[in-house]
Nucleic acid binder design. Structure first.
Ligand SMILES: NC(=O)c1ccc[n+]([C@@H]2O[C@H](COP(=O)([O-])OP(=O)(O)OC[C@H]3O[C@@H](n4cnc5c(N)ncnc54)[C@H](O)[C@@H]3O)[C@@H](O)[C@H]2O)c1
Ligand SMILES: NC(=O)c1ccc[n+]([C@@H]2O[C@H](COP(=O)([O-])OP(=O)(O)OC[C@H]3O[C@@H](n4cnc5c(N)ncnc54)[C@H](O)[C@@H]3O)[C@@H](O)[C@H]2O)c1
Lengths: 224, 224
DNA sequence: CAGACTTTGTGAGTCTGTGCACAAGGTCGA
DNA sequence: TCGACCTTGTGCACAGACTCACAAAGTCTG
């Protein structure tokens, strides 16, 4: 049951990485309920996935289960946290102090694990100094100093789409390695920078696609 | 070049459905620039994907391109909109008038294509009547009437996690067919209801996973 | 009108992810 | 100590998605 250095071993599949946070959350819940041992079956139920998938996913981290018993909840939680880097501190900068940027800044559950909003920036002079979640909005022009000075590793883009690429370029130039983009635009970044996007319009359109199908199945009179 | 009834033909793969909104957006841009014809190559560039993928995706919709020329931008736009149901009207109800709920309600670009926020609900009596984006916040208890009366098809959950399942159940019971869930919790819905989730914590944790790997590659002194 | 040229639509191979099924490994009670 | 029992870890087969490469189908020029 020795800890395995991270980054070692088989490369962890992307699909698995995306599920680790689900297991992490599920384990937090069992922890609160004082449950010491959890089976893949139970974990699968809590995370809403298949039990075999849970076992395969966890096996990428190492052999941390005990046959006939299950997984030690606390130990597994620790291992997943270590793998995801949740034991580290990740200073976050939010660019764009509009509707969304402010909502994000006010989001508690953010600071919960390691993610700490250390700056909110905006290009609009009228927003400067505005207090958002205990932070004064700072000038976008100061991005570089802020990123370097506060060791920002994650940048969040919450500006209008037309500014997104410019902001991304500035974040990358300042040394940010990870970007979460809420703007509905294609943004290109160098390969050594991770970027993920959250796209509300796309999500809604996917929903309407399937909604439309169901509506047509129910009453396919006009074939449209 | 005849229109094909939607819902027909080969079932459209999920991965393709998720990309149609990207093409749609890209085509809107070319439209603004007055470009009449667009090649798969160009479209791929605008959407940030591979050209072969574009062609295969579009081929699921029907044979709407012209060899040697490309796709008629306007016609293709129309076809994608039809397929995604963007020519329809989709009344949306937002449940939870907190930070996020209010930001979402204020989000323009929402109404842009068919999606129209027709109600913002909250269970907290103190929020009742609060004006958000031109709408008065209404009581969660009235959900049923509101959904039925305003023909709401899409529900957005922006409440704390512990209320998410309850809200989802109420939405489903009221007849909503599609749900977008922002709460970081597992929510179960019947198979005939579509649900998608947007999970900020998961996104950040995925970013930190890869960020950690890169950090370790740069300076793998302490193997941790 | 023919031939060069362009771009689509898709067959085929590969890669990634999923889920079953079961042997291996460990617990626990007698 | 032994055997019944339980749950993990994984080999394998299958399904879905991605990419390449190219024939088919159209345009355009001379
Ligand atoms: N509001 C939402 O719920 C929501 C949901 C999904 C996506 N989005 C997207 O998020 C983005 C922000 O939405 P919003 O509603 O907060 O818009 P907003 O207009 O309220 O805020 C945008 C902010 O960005 C600032 N800004 C503009 N250019 C900038 C630059 N170059 N550098 C720094 N700051 C700059 C503006 O001054 C403004 O304060 C948009 O791209 C929107 O499409 C918003
Ligand atoms: N704020 C963000 O940027 C953000 C980002 C991502 C995810 N989220 C998630 O979105 C959800 C909302 O976040 P928030 O920051 O807006 O929280 P919030 O506390 O500001 O707002 C939640 C609102 O939901 C209402 N509510 C509670 N129970 C309800 C019920 N049963 N029915 C109807 N309304 C109910 C509350 O009265 C409150 O107004 C949370 O689950 C959060 O984890 C928020």
């Amino acid at each position: 049951m020795a800890e395995r250095p991270i980054g070692d071993r088989r490369r962890i599949p992307e699909a698995t990485v995306a599920r680790l946070p689900l297991y992490y959350r599920a384990l937090l819940e069992t922890g609160e309920m004082g449950i010491a041992t959890v089976s893949s079956e139970r974990l699968a139920e809590l995370a809403g996935v298949n039990a075999a998938k849970v076992r395969k996913d966890l096996s990428y981290l190492g052999s941390y289960g005990t046959r006939g018993v299950g997984y030690d909840a606390e130990y597994l939680l620790h291992q997943i946290a270590r793998e995801l880097g949740l034991s580290q501190d990740w200073p976050v900068a939010i660019v764009g102090a509009g509707n969304l940027g402010q909502a994000l800044a006010n989001y508690r559950g953010f600071g919960a694990r390691g993610f700490r909003v250390v700056a909110v920036l905006d290009a609009d002079p009228r927003k400067l100094g505005l207090e958002v979640a205990g932070l004064a909005v700072e000038a976008f022009a100061d991005l570089d100093d802020i990123v370097v000075g506060r060791k920002v590793t994650i940048g969040i883009i919450a500006t209008p789409g037309h500014a997104a690429q410019e902001v991304a370029d500035a974040l990358v130039a300042a040394g940010v390695g990870s970007i979460l983009n809420f703007a509905p635009t294609l943004v290109a970044v160098p390969a050594e920078v991770s970027m993920r996007k959250v796209d509300l319009a796309t999500e809604l359109q996917i929903l309407s696609f399937y909604q439309l199908r169901r509506a047509l199945l129910d009453q396919p009179r006009a074939a449209r």
